[in-house]
Design a protein around this nucleic acid. Structure first.
Lengths: 239, 239
DNA sequence: GTATCTCACATCGTATACCATCTGTCTCAG
DNA sequence: CTGAGACAGATGGTATACGATGTGAGATAC
């Protein structure tokens, strides 16, 4: 009997087996960084974070190591961790890489898109056009992301999408602010969207589609960078 | 005087300030995985590794978390860490992504390559041709990597190269065995190398160069995959 | 007033200890 | 013989403790 009780104790799950604390800390930090609550340069103090999350520093350290491996956080020995700073040059390199990856991802999705997908994407693009009067960058950007999400959803290569995701995560808050720099860029962008949709609908050669998608991303980069490096070739490979 | 001695004691670095143990463990593990001493599926037991490296498990855990973030290691709660298995489908997706990234990287290096670079690359390629009689996959692969390293060295986008590196690391031991699958593939490969060199020398459009470089990588994939999915489109985007 | 030194404190780095969880083996009922 | 359950050992997960290191404020000499 005492034996049975013991057994019962043993069988019962004392902890409901959620995610490990390391994982909790990882997601918590990543979310904060993505939300810009922790902006680039922000100092991440292990003890403080551990206290906030009600855990010890060990899991927090592990989480920060993971984020470091992803490039979101910089960890300096005996100094501490900071949210990574993205300087202009890194930004350009990442955007150029993104243009290549997103171009390929779009092309790899092209043949799998259904007419419904196209319709949905076009509807979103039209809502983007509506937001152009009385321009709200936040709403515009949200729609923009939905637009591309629809295209990417059919990408036959999930790894390619992971690479895109990781790269965007690195850029952190800059992701959302891309369009605020050059207002005129928004109009251009919706026009390019429509252009891409037409190519997709018409079963254009994958090369054409890849080219258009790549240029679309690079144009964003150009818009952001205009004031800095006006005449440098910012990344349109001549495909 | 006693004061001076104390000061001296204090100033002297008791630990010579090497890399942290976490970093040591990280590099040690990464090296082992790259060398195939830890093959895919190999179980990484924290305690054992800690003992081997003469440290406690905490730094080892951190190292494994970093490797997990890079995709080299899979970590399952309360079960343990394993060197990631790469199945055929993941392999294909990674190789396709690599073809895209390497194509772009080659194109981004094209205009910066000097005649000396081309000469050196060609010399290496000729040594590859020599190894074809009495074929030694190991030597061939080493030369192959040097060949591409020369081209990539001038790539204007370091981030693109990082992405290439990380992706190769994920494939681990498969990196070296690519050519052993289809013997005839080696001849083809050196011919493609020469083709790429000619394009580079002649200042061909970047699109042509990118296309050639991308096809080169995909051909390797085809060679590896032939027996599995003979007629699927394995990744040559129609650029 | 300025530059340098010193010291205290904040923070990181790691080892140790202990609890939770899994896994394989052994037992026993059917 | 078979399968379900229990137990023990192995292993992962986290907290705590303590040593190592960097940083900045204050003191001191010039």
């Amino acid at each position: 009997m005492a034996r049975d009780e013991l057994t019962t104790e043993r069988t019962r799950r004392t902890t409901p087996r959620g995610p490990s604390k390391s994982q909790q800390a990882y997601h918590w930090l990543k979310e904060r960084i993505a939300r810009q609550e922790f902006t680039p340069g922000y100092r991440l103090v292990l003890g403080a974070i551990a206290g906030e999350l009600d855990m010890s520093v060990v899991p927090v350290r592990e989480a920060i190591r993971q984020l470091e491996a992803e490039g979101l956080v910089t960890f300096e020995r005996n100094v501490g961790a900071h949210v990574s700073m993205v300087d202009d040059s890194q930004y350009r390199f990442s955007m150029q890489s993104l243009s290549v990856l997103e171009g390929a991802a779009t092309a790899l999705a092209a043949r799998a898109l259904t007419p419904d997908d196209i319709r949905e994407a076009r509807a979103i693009n039209e809502r983007m056009i509506e937001t152009l009067d009385d321009f709200d960058p936040r709403a515009f950007t949200a729609l923009n992301q939905r637009f591309h999400a629809i295209l990417f959803a059919r990408c036959s290569n999930p790894r390619m999408l992971e690479l895109v995701e990781t790269e965007w995560a690195k850029l952190g808050h800059l992701r959302d602010s891309t369009f605020s720099f050059v207002p005129g860029r928004a109009q251009e962008s919706v026009a390019e969207h429509e252009n891409i949709l037409v190519l997709l609908e018409s079963g254009a050669p994958l090369g054409e589609i890849e080219k258009a998608a790549r240029r679309h991303r690079v144009a964003t980069l150009d818009a952001y960078m205009t004031h800095e490096h006006p005449d440098e070739a910012l990344g349109v490979l001549d495909i």
